[in-house]
Design a protein around this nucleic acid. Structure first.
Length: 561
RNA sequence: CGGGAAGUGGCUCAGUCUGGUAGAGCACAGCGUUCGGGACGCUGGGGUCGGAGGUUCGAAUCCUCUCUUCCCGACCA
């Protein structure tokens, strides 16, 4: 491609709307152009990068035995009513009515459509297993789109759906996709981890997220330092090992005492006032779980992990309440709450139950209790693992040490079981002639997000540094001697020969000064830069420079490869 | 939806407090000099100051309403 003919609007300045690096560089390097919040046009270079990812995904999906199809973007409400998600999905589902007053929506995902397809086309166990996928633009009316391609409302996604005869077979399909995902992200040249994850709104029983490690990630991961172990999980999910040590050791029975703690609502303040540490305090927080207030107890220095709480309660939605909302709802002395005689459903973190002698609120303004003994002085309705894991915790799998890191979710695979097939009555006949529901799995990859994630992980002050497999072109060829026939004809010749050699080449034939060309080349971030300029006249050589390392090699023009 | 910030030429921003002829740099067009890390000089084109209403002799500037965008939280590929 000749740069002079390409729509490739690079800018020197960073548009003020962009906060994260990938967004800034995508805009500056002329990859995308914003239409409105969370909705972008992919300019030629941006599209080329997206297509690189898509092609890798496609090849590996096909290799794994999946078949590509393309489902409609507009979907009838009927299907969503059948699955129950018309009600559950919420405002993220963009709904509208057509001219016949039929309710419809823009597809944020395709479980309903594909399940409908399966129940009509797949009748026999002999047709199974099947794995169907598509690469398509999805629409989710995100509450807050942000970070450019990282969280858009429109985005390119690969979604695959597997249909199996039973759980065991579905497990194989799941594993097959797990392996395919590993190959995909490895081929993309990304530093990633597969982690255990929460299943979220798609539902189902088991899932892994594929995370690209990058500082700007929206998720936090825990990774076991022991490479042998390989444990990795989203902190939303990461199980905390039950506390060791027995309570009996500190069994000297303390008596509960009520003490005045004027104006002390914060754990740290109370602890200091009483000559203790936050570790001896039980923190009582109010959450709203499916519209019912619940008191949650964790050690004073811990944080509640809402997703774990949600799963423990079996609730569909859980949110923390601030002091005012909590008071309005419960009329309790917020700031001085404690589990003793608390008139609310109470959930305790497992760790709290192992505390022998603790400080809690007294459920009375300006007062706390000391010497409280869980199990003796109060009995929670539910005990479980609800706190957020920390780097100080030990690996729940091997007991080794853990590391916390940020990640960008680029893929997510789920075991769905029969949730959708049962709801939508999607059945086939097994080998004994019985009707059975498909056992399903679903597997997503944020194709456009992969591009953003790759840039988050691979850039420097001068611009993008594309991993070779994702680069929209492999080489940028600079002609720095437009005034010189010798240089220009050498550059043209090289352009032709590189292409004939099977390389994708962006040929910068613009009438620009060398400085601008170098800057643009760095910004766009193609892996190799070939420069034809005055060194050709002086030494008869051209330069090949690797974008990532900056290493330069001078060779005669004939040898370029 | 809650909290915060911002809307002035294609981009980055000044001007707003204290009302009085709409500015700069970059980008764009022309001419000349330049030409290996975003050159320089001269000339030129381009702006309903987000929108509506109000106050005023006079509004980018003050008031009211509204729209949009960005950031922080809940959601997710």
């Amino acid at each position: 491609m000749r740069y002079s003919q390409m729509l490739l609007p690079t800018t020197r300045e960073t548009p003020s709307e962009a906060e994260v690096v990938s967004h800034q560089l995508l805009l500056r390097a002329g990859f995308i152009s914003k239409l409105t919040s969370g909705i972008y046009t992919y300019l030629p270079l941006g599209l080329a990068a997206v297509q690189k990812v898509a092609q890798i995904v496609r090849e590996e999906m096909n290799r794994a035995g999946a078949q590509e199809l393309l489902m409609p973007m507009v979907q009838p409400a009927d299907l969503w009513i059948e699955s129950g998600r018309w009600r559950k999905y919420g405002a993220e589902l963009l709904r509208f009515t057509d001219r016949h007053e039929r309710e419809s929506c823009l597809g944020p995902t395709h479980e309903e459509v594909v399940t409908d397809l399966a129940r009509r086309l797949l009748k026999s166990y002999r047709q199974l297993p099947k794995n169907l996928y598509q690469i398509q633009t999805k629409f989710r009316d995100e509450i807050r789109p942000r970070f450019g391609l990282m969280r858009g409302r429109e985005f390119v996604m690969k979604d695959a759906y597997s249909f199996d005869v039973d759980d065991a077979a579905a497990g194989l399909s799941y594993q097959n996709m797990y392996d395919a995902y590993h190959r995909i992200f490895t081929r993309c040249g990304l530093d990633f981890r597969a982690v255990e994850a929460d299943t979220g709104s798609i539902g189902g029983s088991f899932s892994h997220e594929f995370m690209v490690l990058a500082e700007t990630g929206e998720d936090t991961l825990v990774i076991c330092e022991d490479m042998q172990c390989g444990y990795a999980a989203n902190v939303e999910k990461a199980a905390v090992a039950p506390p060791g040590g027995s309570v009996a050791g500190e069994a000297e029975d303390r008596v509960m005492i009520r003490v005045e703690t004027p104006g002390m609502k914060k754990v740290a303040v109370v602890a200091e006032f009483l000559g203790a540490t936050p570790k001896q305090v039980v923190k009582t927080m109010i959450f709203l779980a499916d519209n019912e207030p619940v008191a949650v107890l964790v050690r004073g220095d811990r944080e509640v992990q809402p997703v774990k709480l949600k799963n423990l309660l079996g609730a569909t939605e859980v949110e923390p309440l601030d002091d005012k909302a909590a008071y309005d709802l419960t009329r309790l002395p917020v700031g001085y709450l404690g589990p003793v005689d608390l008139p609310l459903k109470t959930v305790a973190d497992q760790e709290v139950m192992a505390m022998a002698n603790c400080i809690t609120g007294a459920n009375e303004k300006q007062y706390h209790l000391t010497g409280v003994r869980p199990g003796r002085d109060f009995q929670p309705d539910l005990v479980g693992d609800v706190r957020r894991i920390t780097a100080e915790d030990s690996c729940p799998s091997c007991g080794g040490s853990l590391r916390l890191t940020e990640g960008i979710e680029v893929g997510h695979i789920f075991k769905l079981g029969t949730a959708y097939s049962e709801a939508m009555n999607a059945t086939f006949q097994d080998s004994e002639g019985r009707e059975r529901s498909f056992v399903m799995g679903c597997y997503g990859i944020g194709v456009s997000r992969v591009v953003a994630a790759a840039i988050e992980q691979n850039h420097d002050d001068n611009g993008i540094i594309f991993p070779l497999p994702l680069a929209p072109f492999q080489v940028i060829l600079l002609n720095l001697g437009l005034g010189s026939d010798a240089i220009t004809s050498a550059a043209e010749e090289l352009y032709r020969r590189l292409q004939e050699g099977g390389l994708e080449v962006l040929y910068d034939d613009r009438d620009e000064r060398p400085g601008s060309k170098f800057k643009d080349a760095d910004l766009i971030g193609l892996p190799f830069r070939v420069t034809v300029g005055k060194t050709l006249e002086k030494e008869g050589l051209i330069e090949i420079r690797e974008r990532r390392s900056g290493e330069v090699e001078k060779v005669p023009p004939e040898q370029a490869a």
